[in-house]
C-alpha cells in the first residue's frame, strides 16, 4: 500500500512538470507587451521597461524563466504580478469562491443525481424512469451557458426569486442556483450512471441470495445493492470535482461571480504567465489528487482490489 502510494505520487511529478511547462510556454508565447497601459496614457519610459524586464527576468531564455518559476513554486513565494499585486493574495481571494461553487455543484449532483438514479434503477421501466431518462438527456444536451442564461432570466429577472448576479462575498445561499447550473450536466450523468449500475446489480446473483435469505427489502437495497453499485458513481464524482472547478468559468461569467474564471481571463490578456500557470497547475493537481483518492476509495469499497 505504502509503495503503491509512493509510486502514484512519483507519477505526479512528470505530469506536473509537463503541464506547467506547456502552459508557461503558451502564455509566454502570447504576443504583446506586458507593460502596455501600465503607465497611464503615455508609453512607459524605456528605463521603466528595462527595469521591470530585469526584475521579472523576461529577457532570460524561456527554460531559465520556467525554472525560476518552479523555484518560486517550491519556495511557496509566487511573487507579484506586473502591476505589483501579490499573486498568492489574489489566488486566496478567488479560489475559495470557486471551490465553494464546485462543492455546491457536487452536493447537488449527489443528492439529486443519486436519489433519482437509485429510484429509477430499482423500479425499472415505467413513467418515472422515462421522465428521468428524458430530463437527463435534455440536461446533458443543454450547454451550461444556456442553462445559466435561462435560469438567470427566469429566476432572476422575470420572477425575482434570486439576484441575477452574485455579490462579491458569494455566500453559500447565493451559490445554489449557479451551483445547479454548473453541476447540471454532471448531475444528469450521475443519475444515469447510478441507474445503470443499480439496474445491473439488481439482477446480480448476490442480490438474489440476499432476497433468498429473507433479508428485508430495505436491507437488500441499502446494504447489499447500494455498496456494490456505488463504485462507478464514486469514481465519476471524484474525478468530476476537478472538472467542475475548471468548468466554473462559464457559470462564473453568467452570474458575475468573482472566482478564478474571471481571474484567469484577465491574466491571460495581461500576459501574467506566473498567475495563469499557477491556476492551471492548481487545477491539474486537484484532478490528480482526486483521481488518486478515488483509486484508494476503490480499494475500500471493493475488497477484491488490492494495491501493492
Amino acid at each position: 500500500m505504502g509503495r503503491y502510494l509512493l509510486r502514484r505520487l512519483l507519477q505526479f511529478v512528470p505530469v506536473f512538470l509537463g503541464t506547467t511547462f506547456i502552459v508557461y510556454t503558451l502564455v509566454w508565447a502570447v504576443p504583446g507587451d506586458p507593460f502596455a497601459g501600465k503607465c497611464g496614457e503615455r508609453q512607459c519610459p524605456e528605463t521603466f521597461i528595462s527595469l521591470m524586464t530585469d526584475r521579472y527576468g523576461l529577457n532570460d531564455p524561456l527554460v531559465v524563466q520556467y525554472f525560476t518559476y518552479l523555484g518560486k513554486v517550491v519556495s511557496g513565494n509566487l511573487g507579484e504580478t506586473f502591476s505589483g499585486v501579490s499573486i498568492s493574495e489574489q489566488l486566496l481571494n478567488s479560489a475559495p469562491i470557486t471551490v465553494r461553487l464546485a462543492i455546491v455543484a457536487l452536493l447537488i449532483q449527489i443528492v439529486i443525481g443519486v436519489v433519482a438514479g437509485v429510484m429509477t434503477g430499482i423500479r425499472g421501466r415505467g413513467f418515472l424512469d422515462n421522465l428521468v431518462l428524458v430530463s437527463t438527456l435534455l440536461l446533458i444536451s443543454l450547454p451550461t451557458f444556456v442553462t445559466g442564461s435561462v435560469l438567470q432570466i427566469l429566476l432572476g429577472v422575470e420572477w425575482g426569486i434570486i439576484d441575477p448576479t452574485v455579490s462579491p462575498e458569494a455566500t453559500w445561499g447565493e451559490l445554489i442556483v449557479p451551483g445547479f447550473v454548473l453541476g447540471a450536466i454532471s448531475m444528469a450523468y450521475v443519475t444515469r450512471l447510478t441507474r445503470t449500475s443499480i439496474a445491473e446489480n439488481r439482477r446480480a446473483d448476490y442480490v438474489r441470495t440476499a432476497i433468498a435469505k429473507g433479508q428485508p427489502t430495505r436491507r437488500v437495497v441499502f446494504v447489499h445493492l447500494l455498496r456494490n453499485s456505488a463504485i462507478p458513481v464514486v469514481t465519476f464524482l471524484g474525478t468530476d470535482l476537478g472538472s467542475l472547478m475548471g468548468g466554473a468559468i462559464v457559470t462564473e461569467g453568467v452570474f458575475n461571480i468573482n472566482g478564478i474564471g474571471g481571474l484567469i481571463f484577465r491574466n491571460i490578456a495581461e500576459k501574467e504567465g506566473v498567475m495563469v500557470t499557477t491556476i492551471v497547475t492548481l487545477l491539474v493537481l486537484v484532478y490528480l489528487l482526486m483521481s488518486l483518492a478515488v483509486d484508494l476509495l476503490y480499494a475500500v469499497l471493493d475488497p477484491r482490489i488490492r494495491y501493492e
Partner: peptide, 24 residues
C-alpha cells in the same frame, strides 16, 4: 414470504462466488 425464506426454506446456489456478496 420473507419470513419463510431462510427460516422455513433456504436455498444454496450453483456458483457460490457470484452468489456471495463480494464486498462483505
Amino acid at each position: 414470504r420473507m419470513e419463510v425464506r431462510g427460516a422455513g426454506i433456504a436455498m444454496i446456489f450453483q456458483d457460490a462466488l457470484s452468489a456471495l456478496n463480494p464486498v462483505f
